[in-house]
Simulated assay, not measured.
Amino acid sequence: MTYTARDDRYDRMIYRRCGASGLMLPAISLGLWHNFGHDTPHATKQAICRAAFDHGITHFDLANNYGPPAGTAEEAFGDILKTDFRLHRDELIISSKAGYHMWNGPYGEWGSRKYLVASCDQSLKRMGLDYVDIFYSHRFDPDTPLAETMGALDTIVRSGRALYAGISSYNAQRTREAAAILKELGTPCVIHQPSYNILNRWVETDGLKDTLRDLGIGSIAFIPLAQGILTKKYLNGIPQGSRATQGKSLDLSVVEKALGSVRKLNEMAEARGQTLAQMSLAWVLRGGGITSALIGASSAAQVEDCAGAIANLDFTAEELARIDAISEEKDINLWAKSSSD
């Protein structure tokens, strides 16, 4: 069935300036980390992307290693670009990253120039693109000079492979260092992608959130729903087949520890007239400190639910204090090892 985008899609989303750049991002973006590999029917992937664009979600976030197997998320999205979004390329922000293991040998992960440039070329080929809008260093590499990693991003932008450069999971100190190098090279760091949610506040305690504001760098928070913990999925316990029971990047003990708080947060969300997912996304986006919240979805219905968060992004001081009091597990950082020390 031929896809025709909704005419009112841009009326259904709000857009925010990404730091001090000219780039505007939707408040809700779609990540293809999960549910876009060979373990998901293509029709489901297509429905998720269509629902996103119909709700004004113009930003689609990928990485070289997304799947499974690695690379298949980009291949699937490349197919969807051809069949559904061929006429809309200039309305889309498409991002990719490199930093995690992608191929065997000494050049298949981390932050060398060899790896980043080769990986970007591979990603473009998989998606059938001439360029991506944003290309990230996916994680800080302690064994490669930061100047080399940032120099690779500069090369990728100057060569036309990407329009903007970004970094992911760098702490405040490394972010300042990386931004200074990129500024000197003339290719500014436009965006940072850290993990951030009600149960994971390292960007606040580390000072990263303030650092990004001071440097004029935009931000897009990944796992804003704590990989599903901050949704209705776990309210009645841990269901069979969930990511927690499958060991898919989510520790069962982490979920069990947080359930009491999550149920209380759900009561707050209901009082606000929101789902738990909507309130959790609104919390991440509160006050404009985060440019965009990066959601994942396993169905079009989940996309629609999350997009509804923009209807109420405001909190009273009492509500914020209540959320702080409820959320005893504020330091559940599933990505601590990925963030530079």
Rank of each mutant, 00 (worst) to 15 (best):
L32G: 07
S298C: 08
A269G: 14
A180T: 07
S159A: 14
S338K: 08
F53M: 10
L235C: 05
D210E: 14
E177P: 07
Y115E: 06
Y196I: 01
G241C: 13
G56M: 04
S339M: 11
Y15E: 15
Q122N: 13
P26T: 03
A147R: 13
P26H: 11
L252Y: 09
N64F: 10
Q278S: 00
Y234K: 12
R201P: 00
G247A: 05
G105H: 04
E256L: 08
G241V: 12
S261L: 01
E109C: 02
L313V: 10
E74R: 12
E109H: 06
D324M: 06
R17H: 03
G218K: 10
H88G: 01
R6L: 03
G111T: 01
Y131V: 07
C18T: 12
Q274R: 04
D61H: 07
I217V: 15
G247I: 02
Q240D: 14
L87Q: 14
N333F: 14
A271H: 13
I156L: 04
T211Q: 07
I217Y: 06
D341N: 14
I156E: 05
S123G: 12
E184S: 15
D214C: 09
R161I: 00
K337Y: 06
T58L: 09
W33Y: 15
E204N: 00
V255I: 12
Q302Y: 10
R9M: 07
R322I: 01
H138N: 14
N104V: 02
L276Y: 09
A5H: 11
I48M: 05
G71L: 09
T316Q: 11
G22T: 07
L146A: 07
K209I: 00
I134S: 09
T275A: 04
L182M: 15
E318N: 07
F135Q: 05
R272G: 03
V132K: 14
V254E: 13
Q246K: 15
R322Y: 04
C120P: 02
D210T: 06
D121A: 15
G78L: 03
G273P: 02
T187S: 14
N197F: 00
P26A: 13
A317G: 09
S242T: 11
G78K: 08
L30Q: 13
G273R: 00
R16I: 09
E91D: 15
Y164K: 02
Y15D: 06
E304C: 05
F77W: 06
A309Q: 08
L235F: 12
R17D: 09
L235N: 14
R12L: 13
